[in-house]
């Protein structure tokens, strides 16, 4: 099961958010939730770098609780893709990389109408992303 997807840019603004399944409705306003999520990821990142016995390269891959798994992918430019799935889903690091290289780069970076740092409004981006995500075998189960 795929719950939701966040894309944060390097300065921490949420440039894209999409919800697929969400059994528990948000208790905070959307803006507050983005801030809390980004802040939490930032702390996890610093926690991970500080506690790691060896120097980290990519850092966090995922964390898992009893009911969900947060998959994390960060590019060298600081773009962060965060996908929440149920904890049974395996390693989807490649999928996040694919979202970045085949969808984000193609339809946002190469799109002259998208301004960096602003919400992604491109319909083409949204359709392609949804097509990819809904086609996944674990999308709804």
């Amino acid at each position: 099961m795929i719950f939701n997807l966040y894309i944060f840019d390097r300065s921490g603004t949420c440039v894209y958010y999409s919800e697929y399944h969400r059994p528990r409705k948000a208790t905070l306003s959307q803006d507050e939730e983005f801030k809390l999520t980004y802040g939490m990821l930032h702390s996890i990142k610093s926690f991970v770098t500080r506690i790691s016995p060896k120097p980290v390269r990519e850092g966090l891959h995922y964390y898992k609780t009893s009911t969900y798994k947060l998959n994390y992918f960060e590019t060298l430019t600081g773009l962060k893709i965060v996908l929440n799935t149920d904890p049974g889903v395996g390693d989807i690091h490649d999928l996040l990389q694919q979202i970045y290289s085949q969808i984000y780069v193609e339809y946002v970076v190469k799109n002259p109408l998208c301004t960096p740092g602003e919400k992604i409004t491109s319909e083409l981006f949204e359709t392609r992303l949804n097509a990819l995500i809904t086609s996944l075998p674990y999308f709804a189960t």
Binding site: E33, S52, V56, H61, Y62, K64, S66, Y68, N84
Partner: peptide
């Protein structure tokens, strides 16, 4: 608290490239 699913525990596993 940030869980999209009801009644979640906190972190059970964190995985990174080094540990």
């Amino acid at each position: 608290n940030l869980s999209p699913q009801v009644q979640s525990s906190g972190i059970e596993v964190i995985e990174t490239d080094t540990f």
